[in-house]
Structure formats: structure tokens, C-alpha cells
Amino acid sequence: MNRREPLGIAVIGAGRMGADHVRRIDRTIGGARVAAVADVDAARAEAVAADIEGCTAHTDPAAAMAAPGVDAVLVASPGPAHEATLLAAIEHDLPVLCEKPLTPDAASALRVMEAEQALGHRRVQVGFMRRYDAEYVRLKALLDSGQLGRPLMLHNRHRNVASPPFFTSSMLITDSVAHEVDATRWLLGHEITAVTVLRPAASAGAPEGLRDPQFVVLETDGGALSDVEIFVNCGFGYQVQAEAVCERGTARIGDGHALVTNMAGRWGGTITQDWSERFAQAYDDEVRAWVDSTRRGEVTGPGVWDGYAAAAVCEAGVRALENGGRVEVDLVDRPALYR
């Protein structure tokens, strides 16, 4: 593409995530502008677009993509709506940044993959923003350097203050552990081959019927194990932590000890309360990198294969949650486009 003028973006979905991306594009990053906003709620789309000069509001994603000045698409609508939007964007050969999940299941992700392969080149980046978080980037670089030797285990903790009222037990896997699934694949450079989900007694702080917390074990084709404590009603804060255990040492991120106070006979710090605070810079850096690579005519971030692999692993995880025991992950052969 190699362009000088700002990249015109259609943002699909004007809820909390979509509105935050609109703000980010309009006020924080350079080289792009919001050209159109779409949401099933017309009033919400109009409210988000109202303060942006030249931005049009729509209820139909296809209309937003066809709006004047649109060069690329950012998808922030609910997961079940992603497939139709992605297929339309691919049909029009538009670059896309799609918030995770790519699609809610492996079958629909495969349909998106087939459409992109038919196009003949990559167009879709998936929003696994932890790949842009400074701490995760440093951990990845350290593991890739080989200084610690071969990674043997990866311990992950993912805690939320409270779950949304619509959260189900399977969503702990598909909406939360999905991040650790991608982080495991990316940090270790392995594919995940099997999933086991263990279910301790439910916390008294969890809504009735919600299996929270859960303990997930991921096996990889590189011989490593990755475990995830997912606890979405911990009550005290939002924490995302990871520790790599390697042959010659360990490395840990996410302790959040950037500021420690000493006062009145006590020492301590603060705990972030949600993802928008913890990963604000990662989202900025992710969207900025996507805009910059798109303007160069490149796709550089996690793609459709990564979204498909995460969906397949999460499907296996949901089966393991529901039926107990170890469930193997069934992946298709990786197409040449994604090697």
C-alpha cells in the first residue's frame, strides 16, 4: 500500500472495546483516521462517530466497509458476528485487525482460512494483544535467545475481580484462557496437542453454577507443559502472570511491582482492576503496529492460523471441562500461506 495519507478505518462494533479503539485511532496513534463506525445499535454507532469529522455511522458492517475513505477494517463486534464480517472484508481484499476470537469455533475459523487462502495473500491479523505487551515481549526475547535453555514448563495465572453476569463455565476457556493458549504457542514456538481441565471446588464468590476457578494443563508438541489458573471472581484485582521454567533458569512476568510504597509501618502496592488498565499500552502498540504495517502493505502480527489454532485448542478445552480427562487437539495441516 505504501501510502502517505492517513489509513481510513471502519470500526465494526461500538461497544466498550470498539469505542476504545475509536478513541485510540482518533487521539493516540498516528497515521490513521476513523472513517466509519458500525453497530447493530444505531444510536450507539452514531454517538461514537459523532465527534469525528467525516466519520459515518452504520448498522450494517458491509455498508461501513463500503463507506467513502475506508481502506481497512477493525473488527470489535461479538465473536459470533466475526465470520460474516471477515468473509466480506476478504472478498473486498481489505486489511483487517480482528479482536479475538477470530471466530467462536474451529469450523468457522477454517472457512475464514479457506477464503484467505483463495485470496492468495494474508489480510487478517488477530488481536492477541499480549504479543505487544512489553513484559511478554521481553520474556519472548529471552526465551528465543536460548540463555535459559529449553523451556520445560510455563505457569500462567489469570485472575479477574468479577465475571460479567452472562459468563458461563465454558467461557472461562473460550474468552479467558484463549489468551494463555496463544501466549503459550507464541512464547514457546510449539503447537498445543492436548488439554486437561481440573475443577477445584467452586469459589463462594462465583455466581451459582459457574465453575470458577479452573486449572488447565496444555501439552505441546515440543514436550513442554503449560498450566493456567483461571479465576474470574477472585475479588481483589486483575492479574496476569507467567513464569517460564527452563533447563538453566526461570523468568517471571506480571508481578506488577513497578511502584512499592512504605508508609505507616506497612509496605505494598496496588493491583490493577481490569484488562483496560493492565494492557492499555499493549493495545496502543498493537493497533499502531497494525496501522504501520498495513500502510506498508504488510501483515506482520498473529494471523488466521493463530486464530484457528486457538479456537481448536479451546474447543478441546471445553470438552475436557464438560467430560473430564485429557482431550487431544485436532489441527489440520498448516497451509503454506501461514508457514
Rank of each mutant, 00 (worst) to 15 (best):
R150N: 09
L143Q: 09
I192Q: 02
E5N: 12
T174V: 12
V124A: 05
A141Q: 13
L102A: 00
L74Y: 12
W305A: 01
D41W: 01
A204S: 12
T168R: 15
G222F: 03
R296Q: 13
E243Y: 02
P6L: 04
E83S: 01
M1D: 05
A264M: 13
L154T: 09
L102M: 08
I192W: 04
V34K: 06
V260I: 15
R24L: 15
R131A: 14
A264C: 12
A38N: 05
R326F: 07
A76C: 15
T184K: 08
E247T: 08
G8H: 08
R296L: 14
R157N: 01
A88Q: 12
P61M: 04
S145F: 02
P207M: 04
A289K: 05
G69N: 10
A107D: 15
V11M: 08
R150W: 03
R138H: 11
I173R: 06
A45G: 12
A183S: 14
A310N: 10
A38F: 01
Y238F: 14
D175G: 01
D144E: 13
V126D: 05
I271R: 03
E286A: 10
L94D: 03
G237A: 00
L94R: 13
A320M: 07
A280Q: 11
E208C: 01
V161N: 04
G15N: 01
R157K: 10
D274T: 02
F215H: 14
Q281P: 01
R295L: 07
V40D: 09
A35F: 10
R131P: 00
V37G: 04
V137T: 14
E180I: 00
V126Q: 01
A89W: 09
A320Y: 04
H257D: 15
P164S: 05
D71T: 08
E46F: 00
T272M: 15
A320L: 10
H190S: 07
V228I: 15
R334N: 06
G15C: 05
E315W: 09
T250A: 12
D175K: 13
R130F: 02
F166K: 07
R4L: 14
L210N: 06
P78Q: 07
G79H: 07
D212Q: 00
T168H: 10
I253T: 03
A43N: 12
V228A: 00
W267M: 14
H121S: 13
A47R: 15
G317R: 02
L321G: 09
G120A: 07
L86I: 07
A336C: 05
Y338L: 09
Q241W: 00
